[in-house]
Computed example of a mutant assay.
Amino acid sequence: MSGPDDEARRVLIDAPADLLLDRLAAELDRAYGITGAELLQIDYRLSALLPFTKGDPITSPGHPAWRCFDHQQPVVADGTGYFPVSMRGERRGVLRLVPVRDDPALVGELAGIATALAHELDAVTASTDLYRTARRTRRLTLAAEIQWELLPGRSRSRPSFSLAGQLEPAYAVRGDSFDWSDDGHRLWLAVINGMGEGVAASMLTSLAVHALRNARRAGLALADQAALADQAIYAQHRGDQHVSALLIELDLASGALTVVDAGSPRMVLLRGGQITEQPLEQQFPLGMFDGTDYRPQAFQLSREDRLFVVSDGVIEATGQNVRYGESALDRFLRRTGPMSPLDAVRSLLGDLRAFVAGDLIDDAVVVCLDWLGPQP
C-alpha cells in the first residue's frame, strides 16, 4: 500500500512545470496538515537562499535554513521544518514547511519528498525560466548567462568521489568555466579560461567546452580530446584567440589520474593536511597554434585526497594594492579539510570577496575534487 509520501511524489510528477510548488503545497496540506510550504533556492553567488514566492532573502549563516543547506540534513526548529532540496550531490536549496512535528518518521518522509522535488526541478528547468529567474538577486550579464547555461551543475557526488565548482563574479563572469562527466568508472573534469572580455570570451569558452564534449563523447583519449578542441578553436580564430585549459581523467577504482595541461590554471593537492602544488608540464593553450601535439601526465591519488583547481583570478585578486597570492591561498586551503567540496569552494570565494571588499574584478574559477577511494 502506498503512503502519503508516495502520493506527494505522484503529484510532483503530474504537476505542470509552473505549478510544482502549488500542487505539492496542496497535497502536503491534505495529507499532513502542513499549511505553509516555500522553496528557498540558493542564488548564483551561493550567498543567499531566495524564496520562490514571497519573503526576504535568508543570508544569516546561523539561520536554520542555512544549517539545513550546509549540513544537508533536515532541521526542525520552533515547529518549522527545513529539508534539503538536493539530488546526486547537486544542492538546489531548502524546502521550508510549517507546521512540522519533530517526529523522526515524519521528518524522514518529508525529506524524501524534498528530494523528489529536486528531481522534478531538474526535469522541468529546461522548459521554464521561473526557477532560474527566482534564483537571482540581480540581473546576469549576457556573458554570464551563457556561462551558467554551459555548466553541468555546481556539485556532484557518488560513493567514490565528491566534486564542486563555482564561478566568480557570479553575475558577471566572462571567460572562466568548468565541465565534468562520469560513467561510474571514470570521471572527466575540464577547467577552462577563455581569453578576452564580455560575450566574446564566453563564446570562445563555449566553443572549447562543446569541442571537448564532442571529443569525449566520441571516446577519444584525453590528449586527443585536447587536440580536437585545439583544432576547432584554431580553425575558427587562426591563433588570434585561445583558451587555457586543464583536462583531468580519474579512474574511480584505482585513483590513477591523467592530466593534460594546456596553459592551465593551478592544480593543488591537499593530503593529510599538507598542501602541495602538482608539477604540471605546461603546454600551449588550445587554439594558439595549428596542430599542437598534447602529452598526458600521470599522477596517483590516495584515498581521501583532495584536489583544487584554481584560475589566476584567485591568486591575482587584489585588495588595497595587495595580491591575495599563493601563500594566502595555501593557508586557506589547509583549513578546508573538514568541509564538503561545495562548502570549501564557497568559503574560499567568500574569503576572496572579503579580501577585495566586494565583487572580484577578474574572472575566477575554483573546482574541488575529493577521491574517496574505490567503492563496491
Rank of each mutant, 00 (worst) to 15 (best):
P104K: 01
Y44L: 13
D5G: 10
W188R: 14
L372N: 04
T258A: 15
R216K: 05
A164Y: 03
G196H: 07
L130N: 12
L95N: 11
M195I: 07
S202Y: 00
R45Q: 08
V100D: 03
R174K: 10
T336N: 07
A105E: 15
D293V: 05
H119C: 00
S47C: 07
Y44G: 04
E281D: 14
P296A: 14
L220S: 04
H71L: 13
R238L: 13
T53D: 05
S162Q: 11
V310G: 09
A227M: 13
R217G: 07
P169T: 06
V94I: 15
L142K: 02
L106A: 09
L19V: 01
I192Q: 00
T80P: 09
D251H: 05
D370I: 03
F178C: 02
P4L: 01
V124I: 14
C368K: 06
A143L: 08
S86P: 00
Q73D: 11
R271Y: 03
T80Q: 10
L97C: 08
D70V: 13
W66G: 09
P265N: 11
Q225L: 07
T258R: 08
P169N: 02
E120V: 14
F299S: 01
Q282W: 00
G33E: 00
Y171R: 03
D362L: 03
D122H: 15
I192Y: 02
I361G: 00
L360C: 04
L247S: 10
I146V: 13
Q297P: 04
A26Q: 07
P84E: 02
G55L: 08
S327A: 15
G33A: 09
D5V: 03
D29W: 06
D29M: 10
